[in-house]
């Protein structure tokens, strides 16, 4: 399906000639028929028989991730790197807001203080902590701040884009890589996501090394 509303319509560069008449894509027939076709689309031919056999066949049931052992991961991007964190470590994701540096404490990794819903929290750059290359593209609208929390301890980390939530089973995880870089040292495991390998960060170790960035000797 061609999402012309995102290309030449209100979501894109507004070059569509039809806009002169309809003012907003919401009013355009192309948009509404696209919407209708999405909702009324037929399931793929093998969908029903496929699932019927999976559920009828006992062996297929093992692959169904049960709530007990399922891992909920947030997959996100920092620069070119795609990383993941366990969802239970995340409190919320917010649009970026101003950071005030802290004299004698702020460095490349510990950025400063940030206001998240009325609470003043510590913000850190994961890019610097993991020693990742700077993004080659200018900061996009997808930039977010993720509030991570373990117990009483909260950290706000700047991320370039949230790519989604990934549900996987512990069996899908592969052992962590041999340590080559700062990022490897904080990686708990690798898993396949779309067509690439994504590093699942080790929450406690991550928070530990963040804490070391600000702690007194």
């Amino acid at each position: 399906m061609h999402d012309c509303w995102n290309q030449i319509g209100v979501g894109g560069d507004r070059s569509c000639a039809t806009l002169n008449d309809v003012v907003h894509c919401h009013n355009c027939a192309v948009y509404s028929s696209a919407g209708r076709s999405l909702l009324e689309r037929q399931p793929p031919a093998d969908y029903l028989p496929g699932w019927t056999s999976v559920l009828a066949d006992g062996s297929g049931a093992e692959r169904v991730v049960t709530g007990q052992q399922a891992l909920n991961l947030m997959v996100f991007r920092i620069g070119e790197e795609v990383l993941a964190l366990p969802l239970e470590l995340l409190q919320e994701v917010t649009p970026p807001s101003d950071i005030h540096s802290v004299p004698h404490r702020s460095n490349g990794t510990f950025l400063g203080l940030v206001n998240i819903r009325g609470e003043i929290l510590l913000a850190a750059s994961l890019r610097r902590l993991l020693d990742l290359p700077a993004a080659s593209t200018p900061p996009a609208a997808g930039q977010r701040m993720a509030v991570t929390a373990a117990g009483e301890e909260q950290w706000v980390i700047a991320i370039d884009e949230v790519l989604g939530i990934h549900l996987c089973s512990p069996d899908d995880l592969e052992p962590p890589p041999v340590v080559h870089s700062a990022a490897d040292a904080l990686t708990q495991a690798l898993f396949a996501w779309k067509d690439r390998r994504v590093a699942l960060l080790d929450g406690p170790r991550l928070l530990n090394s963040l804490r070391r960035q600000v702690s007194q000797p």
């Binding site: 802290v102 404490r105 929290l121």
Partner: peptide, 9 residues
């Protein structure tokens, strides 16, 4: 934040 310790000034 306690994690910052006593920051001079």
């Amino acid at each position: 934040d306690q994690r910052l310790g006593a920051v001079p000034g």
